[in-house]
Design a protein around this nucleic acid. Structure first.
Lengths: 217, 217, 217, 217
DNA sequence: CATGAATGAGTCTTCATTCAT
DNA sequence: GATGAATGAAGACTCATTCAT
């Protein structure tokens, strides 16, 4: 509740056009994340950023522009963080998948991506542009890498062709559950990230059923 | 002047009075779903329900009370729809799992559960009570059934013990991906529900890797 | 300064959708007249009209719409007040001119037309639509009557053809001086309306009429 | 720290400093003319003058002071431009009148005097001082000259005594019509200045002068 | 001298909520 | 019961004005 940055007797008159936008965006992310677009108060954002309400308007044209900047920044951060993981598709398929999934969880746990997701879920309907950009950038790019891994795995005989392998998103899919539960019920139920991750990998690698049980129709 | 009620005459056309709250709640669900709490306009809800704004206050104390009623109703509906699926734990484990998962998708595709989820995600932070109730009722109950199925499967030798089987939520987890993508990117990317469901089941039943590939570390 | 209508312990809750708009428009005319568009405060208008600021929005979409309504009303009033003067073009030219000019002064002295004029002068540049409507309605209509009188006068030998008679607006033109001086310097220099009117008529009679027509009372 | 003034060094490129106020005033006249006092933006004025908003405050204490300066300047300019026309009252009355009226139109057409007038009309109520000064300076001075011409004309038998000759302002009065119409409806109705001027003179000559005086060119 | 940066004091506008009928 | 009318409270946004450099 008292999240106001509290810089402790701030030196009244700071001038630093350089860092302001970042500070505002950080404060904005927090606020939009917690209250959604309509619920967000420029008042609080300004206060968190340690500036006056009017000063916001020196950096962003209006609430919507600020929101767009926040969303952009969050997405950008996400992309950057993923970028260097996707470089080489080498080694065993098992390793590749494991590395990707682990990266995923590392990102998910970070505040940022939950924030993006929550914002997209809450305000998406109102900001088709935002949704579209996010979709184009994230979804498409991630999928291509996954597809490549799967195809290569099938070609190398490491992956069993079948319905699952047709859907590249199936690889990260279970993680979404963790993300949502963490986001919504975080206060009530702490899912152990490591345990969940192991379960996820185990599912991916081995499947659930024993060979015998599979054929028991 | 104020004799409009016509209490002595023929009441004939009075018949929807008891249904009013339902209509309001339905309209409210739609509105809260689309705009979140702060973004929702009592105006629009009233209009959708075919009544005047002031009339809302005859049924609900204020916006928050209406929201609570909407959320309650949605959760209640969800619970009811699941209740009769969980009765008997009989037959092969494979069948049990398949039935549960299919039920899940059927529910997910229905508007209602997306609505709850979106509301929980958007407004959860502000309504801990809501979150807590939902968590207690849904999560807990659902998990117990899943756990039972898994334990029974392991006992019957149909399920391979391991990290995945330790986490009962792993069963429905991938569906969350579908739900979120559908909700957020529905307009931009139509995931084929059937294909995704097959992939989900395939993953659960067989796993991704071939036996040979699994051991190739 | 304390022009607030002061209705003396108003009966708090009056409901009368009928008269409200008129009261608001009256208050608006006063306010826009005195302060121009940007200078006008909805606050004051509401107070003058004896309602709350929010209530304004029940009747007018926004400040601009209110302004448009005020302007429309003022113009409408002006038109109506002139309409019944222009009916018959009969009698001696001298009489016709005298009647028109006297009507003019009567109108000019009324608050309304100064108000329109001031608003047009102050805000015209910003509201081309308003200017255009006013121009089309007022200027055009008045001119036609004047032209008719002059043409008829020339045909009847009562008006000396010449540069002056070619410009119908020359008839009311001097009155504009009175209007402006009255409006701007009213507080410092009280022009005697009657004396000015006599001078105006004297100038017109001698300047326009033929010697014979002058004495035809 | 505050030694920037560099009083000893080479001032070389300092040369417009004294002109700054003039540029600001010019920009201000334009802005106040177009938008009125409340509508005027210091922002735009500064930009027009090619300086920063803060710099305005080096020359003028605040918006009102700037406005006063603008008004003063405009009035001053007007006075100067008239001054040298009023020197000698010699020649035929007809000539005198014609010269005065022509001067009037020449001034009127110039942007400046419209500007003053618009400002007086729009903001006069709020700046009684301004109005008073303008009134004292302009109205009074102009009237004296006109009075002198009329009295001399009557004495010389060139002007017909009568109601019109009692009111010296009747001479320039019609021009006010032109000015206002030009200012307000300029975009919609182009009054031909020359034609209007001829009509004005024709009316004055025939309305004021005795038959004999009329033809004395 | 000049100005970029910052802000307090408004101003319009919206909206949940309350009454009188 | 139902509602048209009204409004207080609050929020986004603007702008004249002030500093520190």
């Amino acid at each position: 509740m008292a999240k106001k940055t509290e810089r402790g007797a701030a030196p009244a008159y700071r001038r630093r056009k350089e860092h302001r936008p970042d500070e505002i965006i950080a404060a904005g992310l927090e606020e939009f994340y917690e209250h959604g677009f309509s619920g967000a108060r420029l008042d609080r954002i300004a206060q968190s950023a340690g500036i006056s309400r009017a000063t916001l308007y020196l950096y962003f044209e209006n609430k919507e522009a600020l929101f767009a900047a926040v969303a952009d920044h969050a997405i950008g951060t996400f992309i950057d963080s993923q970028a260097h993981e996707l470089t080489s598709v080498e080694g065993s398929t098992r390793d590749l998948i494991e590395r990707m999934v682990r990266t995923f969880y590392r990102e998910i746990v970070s505040h940022k991506s939950s924030a993006i997701l929550r914002i997209l879920i809450s305000e998406g309907e109102r900001y088709p542009t935002l949704v579209e950009r996010y979709h184009r950038i994230i979804m498409t790019r991630g999928r291509q890498t996954l597809r490549a891994i799967l195809d290569r795995g099938i070609a190398r005989g490491e992956i069993r062709p079948g319905p699952a392998a047709k859907f590249e998103e199936i690889i990260p899919a279970p993680a979404m559950f963790y993300l949502i539960v963490h986001m919504v019920f975080g206060a009530h139920q702490q899912i152990d990230a490591d345990v969940f991750l192991e379960a996820h990998l185990d599912l991916l690698f081995n499947g659930l059923l024993t060979p015998e049980a599979r054929d028991t129709t």
